[in-house]
Design a protein around this nucleic acid. Sequence first.
DNA 1: CCTTAAGCGAGACGGTACGTCGCGTCTTACG
DNA 2: CGTAAGACGCGACGTACCGTCTCGCTTAAGG
Lengths: 209, 209, 209, 209
Amino acid sequence: MVTAMHSSTERSGRTGRPRSVEADAAILGATRDALVELGWSKLTLGDVATRAGVAKTTLYRRWAGKNELVVDAVAVLFDELELPDLGSLAADVEDVVLQFARLLERPETRTALMAVVSESTRDDALRARIRSSIVERQKRLVLEGRQRAQERGELPVQSDDEAAARTADLIFDVVAGAVVHRSLVSAEPVDRAWAASFVRLLLNGLTHV
Amino acid sequence: MVTAMHSSTERSGRTGRPRSVEADAAILGATRDALVELGWSKLTLGDVATRAGVAKTTLYRRWAGKNELVVDAVAVLFDELELPDLGSLAADVEDVVLQFARLLERPETRTALMAVVSESTRDDALRARIRSSIVERQKRLVLEGRQRAQERGELPVQSDDEAAARTADLIFDVVAGAVVHRSLVSAEPVDRAWAASFVRLLLNGLTHV
Amino acid sequence: MVTAMHSSTERSGRTGRPRSVEADAAILGATRDALVELGWSKLTLGDVATRAGVAKTTLYRRWAGKNELVVDAVAVLFDELELPDLGSLAADVEDVVLQFARLLERPETRTALMAVVSESTRDDALRARIRSSIVERQKRLVLEGRQRAQERGELPVQSDDEAAARTADLIFDVVAGAVVHRSLVSAEPVDRAWAASFVRLLLNGLTHV
Amino acid sequence: MVTAMHSSTERSGRTGRPRSVEADAAILGATRDALVELGWSKLTLGDVATRAGVAKTTLYRRWAGKNELVVDAVAVLFDELELPDLGSLAADVEDVVLQFARLLERPETRTALMAVVSESTRDDALRARIRSSIVERQKRLVLEGRQRAQERGELPVQSDDEAAARTADLIFDVVAGAVVHRSLVSAEPVDRAWAASFVRLLLNGLTHV
DNA sequence: CCTTAAGCGAGACGGTACGTCGCGTCTTACG
DNA sequence: CGTAAGACGCGACGTACCGTCTCGCTTAAGG
């Protein structure tokens, strides 16, 4: 679960009516629903509040704006991704690629991810939120996959920790970037055939194809 | 050159006052300027019109909205990319990667590209416009690079044309996607070191690092 | 007929294509049609031009704007009014009152007359045009009616010409004003009963009712 | 006082921020000011809002459009009219006629009254608003004047209430119509001399002049 | 017959106002 | 103090007409 994103969990002051606990979930759910129906650009906070059965003030008390709200609403979706153990690095990566592609086919993910990234180019706080809520959180997949491949002897162990981290970052950008670009920019399907040829390229390189 | 983007070049009817030819260039230039200053989300068509010394109606007469206008305004920037001949495939690719990274550092490209891609997930006409104006147009870099590498003997010649096209698409998505993801999503610098390690991975694959 | 309203009849210069003679009639007719359908406030000159099968430039070449055009288009309607000879002043006046009321029931007259009067409060040229095209032209009805009543011995002959003119103006304002106010402001029907009681008041005065 | 013109006085629901009470007065005042400066046709709601120190949306939340707003803004001016007691019916009527003429000389009344009447020919709701806010409200002058004249013995008492009401309506249309027509359509001054001859005609009739 | 010059249709142009929508803030009364 | 409700100031939207301005074509009269 994504916790403590926008407000500390413990009560800061003692007095007064406590914040409704159901409201947060209702708002995030309503945000996802609205994203599916309307897409990023037509999503309005007033509409989200209405759908959630909540006043607009309640929403603004908890999130700074559309961007922050959508990041929180969407981040949790990426936690669905899981690295299977299919016996080989190639099979594992191919499976994750296809999982990720399925995720990007869902309208709420499709439209929201690029939009908040676009906004984040002018907003450092938003960029940090995206990194911590989505990017860093999902690097676990690369780390687990490498670990498992090393245990299987498919990949060598890098002794330099820093270099190993850089390599993990590189792989993450290549895999995530390629899938996102294929799916959203080139607007071509990420099917099993494409995934297979991508994994082949990733593992063996251009010169060994 | 980017021609006939939003209207056929030849006069459709012969009557009536012809459209001002200067206006198009002025509007696209003003759009780029406004993108630099304001970013995608604060860019308004009224402001663009004012900067271009043009009435808002003229702008709406030629483009359907913000998305279409920005695609046209930004597409031309990608034409700056050039494939150098540095003697080896690795050096050539590294150079293009760095050129592309420089392009993505410019505020107008940064903010606009992801935004229109995000919008395009809900708008087929916009997606098609992006593909024809940007994506397909820049695949030339992959094709030229492969041609040159094949002439040098660095890459084998693929006899199956269709398979060769699929490979070119794959390489394009991997290169462009990785750079975009590194630069905009991970929000880490694409410097010479990263470019070098990316090219190494691209050419040799994970298992040959 | 209303002639020489907006352009002198004789050709000023000699050369060049002469103005189309059908256009004037077509435009005025189209204006009346549009007034019936749309009313004053929704009537647009572009629409009138289209209905008349004429370019907007042609229209502007002949009239200065909406007000002037509508005055010319409507003025001719008031020429329909005729003073019958029904044997008594009371009967004659009652008949004209009812004719005038019928005229004011027509949508083009209803909506246009008050609108141009309203505009004329800020535009001296327009006020003059209304006076000469409509008001002065219809005073003939009062003059004829008085003449006939004097011949019948129903009204005394005023020897002072200036005073006689003032009286005619007064009667005109009272009759026209009462009918317009009843019909358009009070929005009550001008039927035979009302006309009869109005004529009784006009002829005998309040104190002799 | 003109009350409850466009919204009921009591709060309909009890929740939510109440409408600003100052705003109404500020808007109506700004409307009258703008009418004086600009006249009906150049008056814009955006400008009125600015003058009133109010957002355009606030204005649209309370009035349906220019017509309704102007009726409300102008109606109150007619409440200034007062029936003096100058000792005779003739003197009283003459005074009210001159008061009314002064009112119609004011630019806001001049331009607005005819304009809204013109619009009302196509808009039943507007017509009803004009009747209740202006016409019916000012009939009090006729009723009071007749009452006083009857007390003085200048006019007989009509026993039939319905007939008496019809006569009052008739007198109202004749007086108001004559003054409006003289002032706005004929565009001649309503001075003491004209008022005197009008009252003479009204009281004694054409045949007793 | 040919030039000349104005009229004409079409439609793009710079403007201005429109009436609406969403933003993020505020002011109520209630819990 | 949190909350639902909803009015507020603000600013951009996309549209509609305005009255003007090119265009290329048509239509006479005068040379």
